[in-house]
């Protein structure tokens, strides 16, 4: 900022033009999206994956979600006892687990509160839809995302 100095008249104008000319001759820093995919960082909150096996229908995530966009229904199922002669176990099974991504705020609270490691973030981002209702991802879709959960990145040594 040399606004106090005496400057050659209109020097600012020419310097600006020189800068744009230089930029024009440099290659543009552009990722050609559909052909070249940008690699999101591992922690990116792209979409939530669900591990159906791990979920115990405890409803914590649905309750803590700030805009209540997780819809869960489940029922109790009798299961054979783990050892012969034991009491039959009761296991909660999911009937419905939908996340409405048109409402989701991508805050991560649901992942954080799940006590059974059933929810994960994955950095996938290509699930835009022409119709808003299609943004309601059901159990199958959420399970599909499970394959894309990245490993945890190494940490900065402190």
């Amino acid at each position: 900022m040399s606004d106090k100095q005496i400057r050659f008249p209109f020097r600012g104008l020419w310097e600006g033009m020189w800068l744009t000319l230089k930029t024009m001759l440099k290659p543009a820093p552009v990722t050609m999206y559909p052909q070249v995919q940008e690699e999101p960082v591992p922690r990116a909150r792209g979409v939530i994956a669900l591990d159906v096996e791990a979920c115990t229908v405890c409803m914590l995530c649905a309750r803590e979600c700030p805009d209540w966009c997780i819809y869960i229904e489940g029922h109790k199922e009798e299961q054979p006892p783990s050892k012969p002669g034991g009491r039959p176990r009761v296991r909660a099974t999911l009937d419905r687990f939908d996340i409405d991504y048109s409402l989701c705020m991508y805050c991560g609270i649901c992942v954080e509160v799940c006590p059974f490691d059933a929810l994960f973030w994955t950095p996938e981002y290509e699930y835009s839809e022409p119709k808003i209702t299609n943004l309601l991802h059901n159990m199958d879709k959420l399970t599909y995302w499970l394959g894309t959960v990245p490993d945890q990145p190494p940490l900065e040594k402190s």
Binding site: R43, A54, V111, E112, V113, C114, P115, F116, D117, W121
Partner: peptide, 12 residues
Amino acid sequence: YGGGSMTKKWSL
């Protein structure tokens, strides 16, 4: 990362 026994180990 999360509240479960596994994800609790993943420090942020």
